[in-house]
Nucleic acid binder design. Structure first.
Length: 267
DNA sequence: AATGGGACCTGCGCGC
DNA sequence: TGCGCGCAGGTCCCAT
């Protein structure tokens, strides 16, 4: 559920708070979160290192440390980060700084991951990742669809096609563009793809401005919810009225994913 | 190449 | 009240 706007929010907020702080102590509450190396080694590599930069690629948060080490955090479905004085209920990994602030990697379902690498660009998830939507021009976006025979919705969610869009924003983008979630890419005209592009950009920007959607466990780093939920037009609004035509919103499992849409406004 | 399913996980909300 | 079940969505992996 943390998609691009949520991870971007976390990035911006963390950047204001923990840049140049030194990690004093590392507590691994659940080893399943730590990938690639044993938890002991993970801890010793982080110990004493200062945070030099924080950035994002798709849904992946990348924290640059001293000595060219990178802490890679993927929140997957149910992860979130907080910066506080204490541990949280679902804290799985804690980084304590010298000023006693604690960066909590919380994750209800323990599907997230943390790893340390030197060459983050060669991580498979990064290496194969599609372009950043907010760095993409309209004609570049349209061109991505050349020769694609898949349905538009799974394409938008395919991280190797386009980075950062997940199930929630894909649905919102398609509603905005008036495109049915089962529409195939090859039957989508250039003008429609351009409409999808403008919806993609405006929705992502708006969601970032509102600090993300706390549909489930996602939180801002102070623990408060994101503010975009009241602006969701279809997601989790089954049987509620479409804001455009006042007909009830439908829900259907498409490609194994819960999908909300208006069958009148989306063709 | 595209699609479908299962696996990874846990907690919540529902119906009985 | 309590239990079992279905569901939630990101990614990877395997089979068709």
């Amino acid at each position: 559920m943390p998609e691009l706007p949520e991870v971007e929010t976390i990035k911006l907020q963390l950047k204001r708070k923990i840049l140049n702080k030194k990690i004093k102590e590392v507590i691994v509450e659940d080893k399943r979160l730590i990938k690639g190396i044993p938890a002991q080694k993970f801890k010793s590599q982080l110990q004493g290192k200062a945070i030099k930069d924080i950035f994002r690629r798709g849904k992946v948060l990348i924290i640059k440390l001293e000595e060219s080490l990178f802490l890679i955090i993927h929140l997957r479905i149910s992860g979130w980060l907080t910066l506080s004085q204490t541990r949280e209920k679902f804290s799985r990994l804690l980084l304590k700084f010298a000023d006693n602030q604690v960066l909590n990697f919380c994750d209800q379902r323990v599907l997230g991951e943390a790893r340390i690498v030197r060459d983050w660009r060669s991580l498979p998830i990064i290496k194969n990742m599609g372009p950043e939507p907010l760095e993409l021009k309209k004609d570049e976006f349209v061109k991505l669809f050349d020769g694609k025979r898949t349905k538009v919705k799974p394409l938008l969610m395919d991280q190797n096609f386009l980075a950062g869009v997940g199930n929630i924003y894909a649905q919102e983008i398609l509603f905005c563009a008036g495109i049915h979630p089962q529409r195939s890419a090859e039957k989508t005209k250039k003008e429609e793809l351009e409409k999808i592009y403008s919806c993609l950009i405006s929705i992502l920007k708006d969601a970032i401005a509102k600090k993300g959607s706390s549909v489930d466990t996602y939180r801002q780093i102070d623990g408060s919810q994101g503010n975009y939920i009241p602006f969701l037009k279809v997601y989790q609004r089954e049987d509620e009225l479409c804001f455009k035509c006042r007909r009830p919103i439908k829900r259907k499992a498409i490609g194994g994913r819960g999908t909300y849409f208006c069958s009148h406004c989306q063709k």
